[in-house]
Amino acid sequence: MTEAEEREGTRPIRVLIGKPGLDGHDRGAKVVARALRDAGMEVIYTGLHQTPEEIVEAALQEDVDVVGLSILSGAHLTLVPAVLDLLHAQNMDDVVMVVGGIIPEEDAEELRKLGVKAVFGPGTETDDIVRFTRASVGRA
């Protein structure tokens, strides 16, 4: 971002949508990516089958404000902590982390304790995700 953009807070919100793990269910990730883009954010989608290392590297390179992980393989309690740890190691704790997918409520509570700001399950309206994303970076 340019200094002027930063001063005026006009830099668009930058979001990385990541698909860690082996599952190929990308319908939700793509719908959310597009809804955020239509809402004026800059969205980078990693594509499928990424390792946590690849996702954090992309987040760093792209200088994003928000990382959204889409996981429908049941491996969320392994993959999400791995990404959080790597973000921490890169001093990127200010990046907002959200997760979407098939996440049982008990596991969602666990993820929130670990620092995930929101867990979006099936049936979430995209408008809610847009609103949350803006609010999470102080642009409500």
């Binding site: 793990g21 082996l22 599952d23 390792t51 393989s73 049941g74 491996a75 309690l77 392994t78 993959l79």
Partner: peptide, 10 residues
């Protein structure tokens, strides 16, 4: 290592 967390899940 790519299988971590995914074995027997789905």
């Amino acid at each position: 290592s790519r299988s971590l967390g995914e074995v027997g899940r789905e």
